[in-house]
Design a protein around this nucleic acid. Sequence first.
DNA 1: CCCGTCCCGCAAACCGGTTTAGTGAGCGCC
DNA 2: GGCGCTCACTAAACCGGTTTGCGGGACGGG
Lengths: 339, 339
Amino acid sequence: MARRPTIADVARHAGVSRTSVSFALNDRPGIAEETKERILAAAAELGWTPSRPARALSLGKAGAFGLVLARDPDQIGADLFFPAFIAGVEVALGERGDGLMVHLTTPEREESVYERLAADRRVDGVLLTDLRHEDPRPALTHRLGLPAVVVGQSEWSDGLTSVGLDDRPAYVAAVRRLAELGHRRIAHVEGPQEFRHAHRRRSAWEETLGDLGLPPGPVLPGGFTAEGGARATRELLSLAEPPTAIVYGNDLAATAGLSVAQELGVPVPERLSVVGYDDNPLTRYTHPPLSSARADARGWGEAAAQALDRVLAGEEVAHVVLPPAEFIPRASIGPAPRP
Amino acid sequence: MARRPTIADVARHAGVSRTSVSFALNDRPGIAEETKERILAAAAELGWTPSRPARALSLGKAGAFGLVLARDPDQIGADLFFPAFIAGVEVALGERGDGLMVHLTTPEREESVYERLAADRRVDGVLLTDLRHEDPRPALTHRLGLPAVVVGQSEWSDGLTSVGLDDRPAYVAAVRRLAELGHRRIAHVEGPQEFRHAHRRRSAWEETLGDLGLPPGPVLPGGFTAEGGARATRELLSLAEPPTAIVYGNDLAATAGLSVAQELGVPVPERLSVVGYDDNPLTRYTHPPLSSARADARGWGEAAAQALDRVLAGEEVAHVVLPPAEFIPRASIGPAPRP
DNA sequence: CCCGTCCCGCAAACCGGTTTAGTGAGCGCC
DNA sequence: GGCGCTCACTAAACCGGTTTGCGGGACGGG
């Protein structure tokens, strides 16, 4: 196959210098309209597009963002947050022809991946998701000189710009609704507490119960997984005084919980109300349909990418706050059973 | 922040030329052992790593692969094939420090994404997944001079190297097992037939029934979605002679189908046997646990990346065949009900 | 002692863009 | 008519690596 054309080929073909081709392409002043058209026509005819690596080298910009996911692969597949989030990032990036480098790794190797990303200068900045307590990454990216944006609450961002979408209101609304329905023993199956969002969900549950003057029901770890959700549910339902409602950290655990309840002959919602989080497409089709919460993951991705853009442009970017997650009541909740 | 060190800084620091630094780094002969150590020490001390863009420019290699997903975001999130697949690709790429550019797009814009990928020279090659009938991509990548590997059966690859993992045996085994259990009316809820794998699954079901001398049961589209699976199941169960077993195109549709059966008061597996595909982590925790099929998506990703590596190295790569998917019977199947 | 080899290492060119620092032509103005 | 300006364009340097081609010193053999 023929060698790809370079800027020199276009210049020759249009009878101008390489400089002019570059100027014409980038809409810089100093090129006569007529010449510019001739250049662009030549480029089109030869099918020339500037080489990204070459452009990246002279501009000192890679033209790509990085996203490092350090969950176990099993868990990543579980929720559809990431695909939607990535789709949103793509919307923001796609216009400029930039791209997203996705690195899936294990928690142990996480730091080295960021280090390599920074050392390589393969990305211009990174999006930090799934923040943990004492998360090393804000400091790490700062030390590495790697621009970053935190995808989460501003309190977690450690000085970085954040793009937040609050999941708390959905939990507050869910717990309040359950209380309205007469529930007094409302349990929580929490996600891994090292994650700030998992912890935040638990706090929302706990504090809302407190505000309502209700005792905190039992809490069990569900690990955001089907297995964890099933095990926790089994344990909760075998208590002397089982809860009449369970609020899960995510839909996967909740769906598994729904199956366990059914297996144990506990009718939902007659004897147990169930609430998930994520609005997984499956939740509308479980039996009964699972109450959940919806967050605009796609919009989140788009906003995060735009924020990182502005950070890279050197702007002082304020924390971005997106509309919060919304509680979606469905048939999996109902009035508390009579004692 | 200080400017990042370049190869010239390392050369100066070690008292050698840039050439020597490059040679030392790339293990090329012609550098004395002692000198090499001094160079590497200098590099380490300055914290220098070669810049990817610069390297990409001189080598004419981007050091990255591309993966374009053209499903609707909702559908991508649904199965955990991609996260596991990407994790596998990462394993193969990570060793060399290469990366994966993921582009999530819509079917309409798919071709232009490949065109840009090729024009930009931002990736060295692409992995083609989700092949369709009359898929334009093998010809497109060939025309664009963009090296590619087909993730799927060799018959689909149109001359490209393929890395296949056969899902057929799992379907054959499932249908045979159902027949053994006495089922005679075995339905199929198929995925979108423009996808070759969806079509292949349907053919496996159909041909196995034929081999067994059984009439093909009803087929309905399920679109690989929860909604489609639920709708198809509802329709199947309201037939005058409803099937006693349903084989779904994937777990998502099957899980939704399970809920519908339950909602309609059709006990599983007593009156209806159900089989999915993908071995989604949830399937072990549905009620009853869903029979499914397991394929090593991670290994698939790793093998695909390695194959693309070898294609890029100019080797003649034969079609790679991985161990086929395996049927995983669980409690969602049982003996056919007595008429 | 001289010459051919081998081993090391360097200068310079190159990859394909962008950008800086001019150059020359044309024009208005006094 | 000469000066200064603007406009359109270009030559050359630069980004940070890799690679080619060559030179100098040590060593061994004749």
